[in-house]
Write a protein that binds this DNA or RNA. Sequence first.
DNA 1: ACTTACGGTAAGTAATGACTTACCATACAA
DNA 2: TTGTATGGTAAGTCATTACTTACCGTAAGT
Lengths: 120, 120
Amino acid sequence: MTYHTKYTMGEAIRQYEKAFNALGDPTRRTIFKKLQNGPLPVVAIAKGLTVSRPAVSQHLKVLREAQLINISSQGAQNIYEIDPKGIIAMRDYLDQFWNEALDRFKQLAEQSEKKKTKSK
Amino acid sequence: MTYHTKYTMGEAIRQYEKAFNALGDPTRRTIFKKLQNGPLPVVAIAKGLTVSRPAVSQHLKVLREAQLINISSQGAQNIYEIDPKGIIAMRDYLDQFWNEALDRFKQLAEQSEKKKTKSK
DNA sequence: ACTTACGGTAAGTAATGACTTACCATACAA
DNA sequence: TTGTATGGTAAGTCATTACTTACCGTAAGT
């Protein structure tokens, strides 16, 4: 019946789309979080996770294609680290909504500002 | 075999997790984008989309639970509009990585700042 | 009351995608 | 060269989820 086809083959997939898709998965968010404190080889990333090492490799691939992480080999090891490009793409996407719709809910925005002291 | 269980029943699902999950789907991003220019009733949202109206209702439910949109009924119509809470939750999540890992890629960060004039 | 428009929910199906094990390739050490 | 550690890819399976059609309830107009 083939009624269910997203990404209707004409349109290019943007960076932020890949990024949202990537961070849409909890395991990938866990992996991403692990890299927050610095670069790690794959085994270190997989350690402690409930899923197998190949599964981790597959997740890393998705994160890499979303430009949320970088790879760099060091001998037999593949070291992954956070790549700001994906984060920037997502922030820019969110800011777009932020800016254009801001006037409609200014009060709510202000509320959030108060309890944060907003870094930078 | 039950080898595949995420959200290991102890942990609460945070707001930003729901939000990332919600925007992880392309159809929901399309819907979300439609609301960017102001509130719309369901039929207006569904118009132009390739999926059925019930499918839209289901997506709206997910977006609502992620606090990315608000509902308000007006007679027989259900009007949806963007809710900043979900956006804020995601921004805060991203900012966390931003701040803690910033030193490792300062130069890239600066690049992005330049071509944006950074709202607020 | 009857009809029409709006839209949520139920039940079932099909596509997607998150996993598994098995295998292979590469780097380095003995 | 042989062995060991690292990690990517292949093929297949199962869970999830994005859909469908059918149905029902509510609001407003005639």
